[in-house]
């Protein structure tokens, strides 16, 4: 891991402790996870205790302390999606990828997560793959969408 990249991110936020969450978000999007070395560096440079960083890194859902897959599959479990069959979508996604919600496969191909509302409620049920929304998704269409992922 390139520690100078982490320093750049910290500097971008003027090294302020109040920007801790913003800094971690940037690291997460740079690395797809929060490597321990990066967290140690943040702790030292911002003078924030590791216990607080650990709390934040596990409190907020956007963060991961383990590497994520190349493809991020998010299944929306918002109320509108729930009443339109989100559970069946999730079941199918888990079946197709072989990955349970909240987990990543051993080849680091897919990470599957549930999210509590993507804000596309009119199109429920919604699945998001690598940032692209798939609205009104039927369980039978899921395999073909996911099979397109390399």
């Amino acid at each position: 891991m390139d520690i100078s990249k982490i320093d750049q991110i910290i500097d971008k936020h003027d090294g302020e402790a109040s920007s801790l969450i913003q800094i971690l978000l940037d690291i997460q999007s740079e690395h797809n996870w929060l490597p321990k070395e990066a967290l140690k560096r943040v702790s030292e440079k911002l003078q924030v205790p590791m216990s607080r960083i650990q709390h934040i890194a596990t409190f907020y859902k956007a963060f991961s302390l383990v590497p994520k897959g190349r493809h991020q599959v998010h299944v929306c479990m918002g109320t509108a999606c729930h009443v339109r069959g989100a559970q069946r979508v999730l079941d199918t996604v888990q079946e197709v990828t072989g990955v349970k919600s909240g987990e990543t496969d051993s080849d680091l191909k897919f990470s599957v997560e549930t999210v509590n509302c993507l804000g596309c409620c009119a199109l429920g049920p919604v699945m998001e793959v690598d940032g692209k929304h798939h609205g009104n998704i039927a369980p039978s269409q899921i395999a073909s969408v996911l099979n397109n992922c390399e």
Binding site: S19, I21, L25, H55, K61
Partner: peptide, 20 residues
């Protein structure tokens, strides 16, 4: 960073300070 509870005003303010 993904926490429903931060919609609550005092929790949101705690988050603005860079904490859980």
């Amino acid at each position: 960073a993904g926490a429903f509870v931060c919609g609550e005003s005092s929790a949101l303010m705690t988050a603005l300070e860079g904490r859980a």
